[in-house]
Write a protein that binds this DNA or RNA. Structure first.
Lengths: 379, 379
DNA sequence: CGGAATTTGTTTAGCGGTTGAATTATTTGA
DNA sequence: TCAAATAATTCAACCGCTAAACAAATTCCG
């Protein structure tokens, strides 16, 4: 009960627009001021909340002491392994990114152990930076482009050609071995980053992560949807045409064959160079992207009919290509989604830059702490 | 906290295989015997639990008093409107069906008000029967083949040609006007019935409801998944081929055009007559059903790739046709679902008979009471 | 047959945590 | 300078759970 109320108070402070007073929190939670005072004292003592000078306020009365999440409380380390880069960042309790790093290296020729060692080194370096700035990293999360078990086993990462990699075990032996590390799918964590990106109250959406493969992170009522075993969101392998071209996964007509990076860049240089060319050449883009958008729309329409979300966010490489993709996606959705008749769908580009998953990962670490403050303060 | 623990105790009693004693419940919940005693006394006083004579037990010691859900506690009324029948039933707290009724009438020529009045009458009649047997109906739930809002507004029921029908408002004026009535999608409630059907511990599955249309109810971790607005599960309008035949919804190539009842019974008599013919004529069934199963499999593979469930339950008319449908559904799933490589899918026929949704609806009413006993006992 | 052992269920004192009212603290405004 | 207003703390009361002792009802075994 104590634990529950601690989390409740913390949530109110985090959600407030300006630093609330103890009295404000009492009013918004329904608890009494006495209780809130006691809880806040605990949270301040535990390093999760800080008091700030009273905001200039009109009217009489004793000035309120503002409460904010402690900017030097426990920090989260986010790491990302993707096909053509590694990334990492450190965020504080407020969700602000304090340090970041990206390494552009194609990971495909490297062994899983090499890649995991490299990303651990990147993380250790960021942790040192954070420590120098007075922030202690309390935990880490790693984003990978594949299907991951809760135990940290990567079952399959098709575009890295990994399978059955015990990432958690390998990391435990490295320089981050003393940190609790969770491992999650890249699209899931990017979706979380999108959810908590500044302001705009997205409640439920599908985040489409266009990288070498196509993944999706599903957010429902501000909560990440993981499916039964954590393996949801394999949008790239939803069927667009049952008799279409063969996919790397073995099936026919998967979305990835129509809207994956390799399909978009056919006859163009691979990677960023080809994408830049596509963005620069409006003629080319108009010729090639709408049909990919239609395929994306067909697949997403099925997803939306089943899942019932009202917003699609185009992320990864689809973000910058949204001007050409979104109209055909939107058209297909409004044609095929039953509910769009009385409740139209929204399609928009992601608000995030590259390495969104790393930011989401770091944010997930601190939000875990905020969600269970009692757990954190026991130590 | 009290409320939480009351529900906890109730859940343990409901989940037990044989009537547990207070001591058993204490052991399985982690509460002390003293606390459980107090909680149980409240629940017995509130008419939710009953004590039964001590079971003959081996060993020494004072004999235990068994606890069971009160068979004469509050009962739930379930109602179902479907295209070619109305159904209703009353279940007691244990989930046992005590009274039932079905009316085979084609509802399509009738107005919504007429149909709602008829189903309300059916409900009132069942309530009278239940009262005569000493059971008081505490609430009702109505299943409809369409998209429903939480407020009881039926946005669209394509196969009844209904739209914007205020079912809750209409029912409030009828003979059930004094009961709290919730309204929900037919496939959702049938899925709940399947979930709570005797025994076998299904945890997460997609229940495919084949009626005139095709719907789906999604259960994840023994919890109904409703999507963002409660409009999930429109499997019938997932796209199988983007350039397929036009569907009643306006789009091209919806699953319903390949595996809906009308597609299955092309050139056969409509309704039960045609279905009987199909079941009787193995030659015909082998010729026609596997291709429908393949389409179903294509659509379900996309769903499973996104949602990550490991079991598909074929219900409604698909249940009896499962021997011909399931193999091709299964084949398509194992071809197309990524996770099936290391975690194979299961496809099975529903354990339920007709009017599954009515049973699910009635069960939902009593489970709501069991989930919040404090709420119920306040009255 | 009768007492010890055993298990169930209740009683009682104590404790953590919340509430509500009273109290103290700090400011504005007349 | 003092009253009014608002913020935060203190303190007694209370609710619900726990732990341990106790009462009740049965079996085991000499």
């Amino acid at each position: 009960m104590r634990a529950h109320n601690l989390a409740l108070v913390l949530r109110q402070v985090a959600a407030a627009h300006r630093p609330p007073s103890r009295a404000d929190v009492a009013a918004s939670t329904g608890l009494t001021r006495a209780t809130v005072s006691a809880l806040v004292d605990d949270l301040v003592g535990g390093g999760l909340l800080a008091e700030v000078g009273p905001a200039p306020r009109a009217g009489a009365g004793r000035p309120a002491v503002g409460l904010v999440l402690h900017a030097y409380g426990p920090a989260g380390l986010g790491l990302e392994i993707n096909v053509d880069y590694l990334a990492g960042c450190v965020v504080d309790l407020t969700g602000t990114v304090r340090h970041r790093a990206v390494l552009h290296v194609d990971q495909r020729p490297l062994s899983p152990d090499t890649v995991l060692a490299a990303v651990a080194d990147l993380g250790a370096q960021l942790r040192t930076e954070a420590a120098a700035a007075g922030r202690v990293v309390a935990g880490a999360a790693l984003a990978v482009p594949g299907l991951v078990s809760g135990t940290g086993l990567i079952h399959r990462a098709p575009n890295l050609a990994w399978h059955d990699v015990d990432a958690a075990g390998t990391l435990a032996g490295g320089p981050l071995g003393d940190l609790p590390v969770t491992i999650d799918n890249e699209a899931n964590l990017a979706a979380l980053a999108e959810l908590h990106a500044d302001g705009q109250g997205l409640d439920s959406f599908v985040y489409v992560s266009g990288e070498i493969g196509i993944g999706a992170g599903i957010v429902l009522h501000r909560d990440l949807f993981r499916g039964a075993r954590g393996w949801s969101g394999e949008l790239g392998h939803v069927c667009v045409r049952p008799d279409g071209p063969r996919c790397r996964c073995g099936a026919l007509g998967c979305l990835e064959q129509y809207a994956g990076q390799e399909a978009l860049l056919r006859d163009l240089p691979a990677g960023e160079a080809g994408l830049a060319r596509l963005r620069a050449d409006d003629e080319l883009a108009r010729h090639r992207l709408p049909s990919a958008g239609t395929s994306l729309g067909v697949a997403l329409a099925g997803v939306v009919n089943m899942l019932d979300v009202d917003t699609v966010v185009l992320g990864g490489i689809f973000g910058p290509l949204a001007p050409w993709l979104a109209p055909s996606v939107e058209a297909e959705l409004s044609r095929r989604v039953l509910t769009s008749a009385w409740s139209p769908m929204t399609v928009r580009a992601s608000a995030l830059g590259p390495a969104a998953a790393a930011v989401g990962a770091a944010g997930a670490v601190v939000r875990d702490i905020l969600a269970e403050p009692a757990e954190w303060m026991r130590t």
